[in-house]
């Protein structure tokens, strides 16, 4: 397999996703199959080919830097999982 279970565990940690041992094994297997398939791209000579990151050809799309009032404050607060005195509550960042 291209990816070991240990490698998938590391990737999952970087991606902040908890996985069970069964899920780790299954993802190692299916991700390896997908990544192996990607090797087909090595058949293509891309020497000197520019990558296409976007297709519109638009460049430097500017807008005026104007202050606009956001009228969604209360509705945004309502979507938050935990709020205290109109502020978002999160677990401590440092132990």
């Amino acid at each position: 397999m291209t990816l070991s279970i240990e490698e998938v565990r590391k990737i999952a940690q970087l991606a902040r996703i908890e996985l069970t041992p069964e899920e780790l094994a299954r993802h190692a297997e299916t991700m390896s199959a997908v990544l192996d398939y990607m090797n087909i791209l090595n058949e293509v000579d891309t020497t000197g080919v520019e990558p296409t990151f976007q297709v519109t050809g638009l460049e430097n799309v500017y807008r005026d830097d104007e202050v606009v009032e956001c009228k969604l404050r209360d509705r945004l607060l309502k979507q938050m999982p935990e709020v205290e005195m109109e502020e978002l509550v999160v677990p401590g960042v440092f132990d």
């Binding site: 990737i11 991606a15 902040r16 996703i17 996985l19 899920e23």
Partner: peptide, 18 residues
């Protein structure tokens, strides 16, 4: 993220992260 995403979403995030 474990309980909020189905398997395929997790797979895509993992492939992309890699």
């Amino acid at each position: 993220r474990r309980f909020g995403f189905p398997e395929e979403v997790k797979r895509r995030i993992l492939i992309g992260t890699y």
